[in-house]
Amino acid sequence: MTTTPPDPGRLCITMCNALNELPRLNQSVQSFLQQHEAPPPAVFAANLALEEMITNIIKYGYDDSLSHDIRITLTREPGRLTVRIEDDGHEFNPLSQPPPDTSPQIEKRKIGGLGIHLVRRTVDAMWYRRREGRNLLEMIIRLPSDTEPAAPSTSNAGSCPGT
C-alpha cells in the first residue's frame, strides 16, 4: 500500500485487492481525519463507506487471482469530506442495487447484503460512473460548518496525481 500526501487537505492511498490491507488503510484514514478534526459521525461514515465498498470490490470485483490496485482519495474541503474509490474490477454501480430484505422476521432474514444499504443511508450523496474500464465511486459526507478548515482548499475534489 502506498500513501501520497500531495496536499494537506487530501489523502491518496493505493492498496491492492487483499482484505489484510484494510487495517493499514484504516490507520491512514484515521490519522488523516483526526488531523482534520473531523467529527465522530463523519469519521464513522467514512470508515463504513470505505470498508463496505472496498470489501465488495475485493470479494466480487475480480475473476482472476492477480493483484489489482484500488485507489482511494479522501478530500477535506469546507463543509464536506469526499471519499473517492477507483477500481478496475467488474462494472458495478452500487446505486442500481435493489434495497435489501429488511423484514422483521429473523428466521427469514438473509445473511449479508446490507453493506451498500448502510452506506447509502450514512453518506449524504453518492455518484458512480464507469470510465475506461474502471469504476469510479464518489461519496460526500457533510461536515458541520464549525469544523471547516480556516483556509478553504482550492483542490478539485477527488483526483490524485497519476489517477
Partner: peptide
C-alpha cells in the same frame, strides 16, 4: 464500530 460484516456475524451466530 460495526459494519455489515459484523451484523452478518451476529445474525449467523443467532441462527
Amino acid at each position: 464500530y460495526v459494519s455489515s460484516a459484523g451484523l452478518r456475524s451476529v445474525l449467523a451466530t443467532y441462527k
